[in-house]
């Protein structure tokens, strides 16, 4: 875009570039700082004397004899059994993403292909549901779940997360399906398919980009969730995010805050990877709803 439309004078360019640079530092610095610091000891990462200590790490040298230490990670993953939480997160996110996509593609397809009035109402209801803070719904789950004796276990959390994410999922998939011409499924039906066969054999194969993007967001929603998993899972079944929160209560008193730092970094790394590999899909997903207006 280095053409006339985008050309600007030097002052403007300097101002714009420096603003952008400031934003990039704000956006990214905390992550790299914490990543670096997670390999130091507490006295360095939380140093009152000089922030330089967190980078050079004199106390780390003194206490462990090396520039970097894995003590935080060892403490979190082994001593505090963070691996269990990581495993639970894995189970929850994989199941939630898969089930959400199955339900969502079916529903989103139906909504995109029907021209009837009720589709409008379903979409509006989904919009309202999407706006509900999740914690308000959690308040409604607890008593019934206690009564049914299904509180605390992973399947419950999975089903709840699927349902809570449905409004978002069907909206997003609906707008992706809208971009696929109806001609495609109609010719399949004339060629001899039932509605479902047309959906499965003809529409889904060209929907992969949309399915992958929506899958990413389903993954993010379940991975990042705190309200549902914190309230609906018992101590043994906790996923990473509530687990880290329950770390906080104890580590402060025990002086093992670096465990929490290490756990936070561990839980952030997968997200980093995700953005790195799926940047394009994430960008297209964020704009999917907007393009339609």
């Amino acid at each position: 875009m280095a053409d006339a439309v985008m050309r600007r004078n030097t002052t403007q360019a300097i101002v714009a570039t420096s603003l952008l640079a400031i934003w990039l530092v704000l956006a990214a610095f905390p992550f790299f700082w914490t990543l670096w610091g997670s390999f130091k000891v507490e006295a360095d990462f939380f140093s009152r004397q000089s922030w330089w200590n967190a980078i050079s790490g004199p106390a780390t040298m003194l206490q462990t004899g090396g520039h970097f230490t894995l003590d935080g990670y060892r403490g979190a993953w082994i001593q505090r059994e963070f691996w269990r939480a990581a495993l639970n997160t894995g189970i929850v996110t994989v199941c939630v993403t898969t089930i959400s996509l199955v339900f969502g593609t079916l529903g989103g397809y139906a909504l995109s292909r029907s021209t009837r009035r009720y589709t409008f109402w379903i979409l509006i209801a989904a919009l309202v549901f999407r706006a509900m803070p999740h914690i308000t719904l959690v308040a409604g789950y607890l008593l019934p779940f206690f009564k049914l004796n299904i509180w605390g276990v992973l399947p419950t959390a999975i089903v709840v997360l699927v349902a809570i994410n449905q409004p978002f999922t069907i909206w997003m998939l609906h707008s992706f399906f809208m971009s696929i011409p109806k001609d495609l499924d109609e010719s399949a039906m004339v060629d001899g398919c039932t509605r479902f066969q047309a959906f499965r054999w003809v529409v889904i194969p060209v929907m992969w980009p949309g399915v992958i993007t929506t899958g990413l967001f389903s993954f993010l929603l379940s991975y990042n969730d705190f309200a549902v998993t914190a309230m609906l899972l018992n101590q043994d079944n906790q996923t990473m995010v509530p687990k880290i929160n329950s770390f906080l209560g104890t580590v402060q008193t025990e002086g093992t805050i670096m465990y929490a730092v290490a756990a936070v970094v561990s839980a952030t790394v997968p997200l980093f990877m995700l953005v790195m590999f799926f940047q394009r899909q994430i960008v297209s997903g964020l704009t999917a709803g907007a393009v339609k207006g």
């Binding site: 339900f103 029907s114 789950y141 409004p167 509605r195």
Partner: peptide, 24 residues
């Protein structure tokens, strides 16, 4: 067809969004 396709999604939303709203 519409009902068959939308059913899983609607049932999930009904059970875990509409009912809880009633419950609270």
């Amino acid at each position: 067809d519409f009902a068959a396709f939308i059913a899983p999604s609607l049932i999930a939303m009904f059970l875990f969004i509409v009912l809880p709203v009633g419950s609270i």
